[in-house]
């Protein structure tokens, strides 16, 4: 199922005006792999918790693309809360978008809502 859903999302992403360059995690295995990689690295991981019909999430998409280009030392991924509800619940995600900042597998910060400045400030703070 993961492969098929991934394919759908790739098609979906590629149809948008500016395709998302943020890696989407669709399955529990993809999530586990990403989390384990994060635990063994000093690299900051930013997780965008999103949903299909969340307007502010769509608003943040081009901003995240910009950040992917700007911060090559930071890893960006996105999780659809309807695809991985357990992960969203585990991190207490209630409103979308929620951006979770992890380092070595531990949460170091979070931003709730479509706030570019807030997110950028926290990325700058934790990426070193």
């Amino acid at each position: 199922m993961g492969i098929q859903l991934s394919h759908i999302h790739e098609v979906q992403d590629s149809c948008q005006e500016k395709p998302s360059r943020v890696k989407a995690l669709h399955t529990k295995d993809q999530w586990k792999n990403q989390f384990n990689a994060c635990k063994n690295s000093d690299k900051l991981l930013v997780i965008d918790f999103t949903a299909t019909w969340c307007g502010p999430c769509r608003f943040m998409e081009p901003i995240l693309n910009e950040f992917v280009d700007k911060y090559s030392d930071v890893e960006f991924v996105k999780v659809d809360v309807d695809e991985l509800p357990d992960v969203a619940t585990e991190y207490g995600v209630q409103a979308m978008p929620t951006f979770l900042l992890l380092k070595r597998g531990n949460q170091v910060d979070r931003v709730v809502g479509a706030s570019k400045d807030d997110l950028q400030e926290k990325i700058e703070k934790h990426r070193k």
Binding site: W53, C54, G55, R58
Partner: peptide, 12 residues
């Protein structure tokens, strides 16, 4: 950005 509005209306 009416795209934001449109997405939310569809979500509702």
């Amino acid at each position: 950005d009416k795209g934001v509005t449109s997405v939310v209306i569809k979500g509702l």
